[in-house]
Design a protein around this nucleic acid. Sequence first.
DNA 1: TAAATAGTGTCTCTTAGACAATATTAT
DNA 2: ATAATATTGTCTAAGAGACACTATTTA
Lengths: 242, 242
Amino acid sequence: MTADTPLDPRYVPSTYDPASFDRPSVTVDVVLFAFRDNDLHVLLVRRKKWPYQDYWAIPGGFVNIAESLEDAALRELNEETGVDDVYLEQLYTFGEPDRDPRTRVISVVYFALVGADQARQVQGGDDAAEARWWAMTDLPPLAFDHDRILRYAHQRLRWKLEYTALGFLLLPETFTLSDLQAVYQVVLGERLDKRNFRRKILSTGVLEETEEYREGSPHRPARLYRFTAAAIELEQARRRFP
Amino acid sequence: MTADTPLDPRYVPSTYDPASFDRPSVTVDVVLFAFRDNDLHVLLVRRKKWPYQDYWAIPGGFVNIAESLEDAALRELNEETGVDDVYLEQLYTFGEPDRDPRTRVISVVYFALVGADQARQVQGGDDAAEARWWAMTDLPPLAFDHDRILRYAHQRLRWKLEYTALGFLLLPETFTLSDLQAVYQVVLGERLDKRNFRRKILSTGVLEETEEYREGSPHRPARLYRFTAAAIELEQARRRFP
DNA sequence: TAAATAGTGTCTCTTAGACAATATTAT
DNA sequence: ATAATATTGTCTAAGAGACACTATTTA
């Protein structure tokens, strides 16, 4: 019985087709989220060639042969945005045979979050540029199966905010609790009670008060908070375990 | 700035080495768990060739060019075990450049659970055979980075039992609540209170009573339960969303 | 009747959610 | 003083965990 396992030299898989024994290509794509203008945004790039010319797509590219998947993701990201310090985790690997009309492409997709202040580099070109931020509520037509990927990434983000206190990853280094609540409300798509929200977030211990306030508005200034370094470390460790 | 993205024809990655511009190979591996002899077991196969000759490894193989990743996983699994109906989800994609000494191999690893009664086919050969079950508490030396993969799969299983009621996926079609509790205790590595365990599991609604009892022991017979089909459907749907 | 496992209920503590009034600033 | 947002506490309901005795079967 064990003689017809794939490890046996005599073994020939029933679906084997000698004419098409190419190896699939592997890309690494990155779904990068940020919170801008009170809305959740994704970074997309415009395609210049067939297929899906002029459609928008999740940034990504081929893995170099001597580079880890995560390094590839960080490199791609840095090339697109200049961003260096992001929260990154592997999202899912998409490999349906017909997702790219050119050839078999397997995409290892990463999920990244960046603070609103860190990703200014991309902002410059804006509409005419090749890469820009899009509000998740107002996406353009997307190339390949990228709408499905984006929906899944969005779901992962929702899940993350529901079960962890890591929403601050989408905000600048300091922020008010109202800022943070806005992130949660937009991502989760529901209104949250202010008192319960504060109690819950503060009880996790991932935030600490600064001595500063956001001044300049015609109302009481809000205290600024920052996250504790330990918070991210812990989550990264948990995620990166494999 | 966008001129040096990978989408630009002029772009040359800094790590590019023309001599080694092979495409990575892609394998699909499957970590298959079952609960046998009151212990958590994994299915492993023995390698016949270099590298890691005679070491044990997670079963897997190359993806056929026209086959989805999930189909590849199911095919590999069926070839090894004859098992057809398993719970399957994608676990993680491992792609460190040096994890296989022969060439760059990227492994999309799936996580599978099978009822103790369904995987008898492998059981026959036992020690001399090429594929056999190993208790997680007593693993042999493993090929490649497969110990790491196994630890991660084990963690995922722990997580799954902690947050869902899907432990029955490791059991035969009918089982007693004590059987199920044993699964949870072994996988989670802690003793559970019988009353609390039953209350919690039954409250999820994934189980239903049968009219049968397990007879033949010198004590009160235990009622047999089965899971509701809806339970698995739901979890599969949740997982497969992407 | 002894041995062995099956089966069952209550109390307490913690946590999550509903809910509204006061505080502070700029204009 | 008015407008606007910040900040704070209590009550209630539900869920999680600790805990021990009775029931049923075979040998």
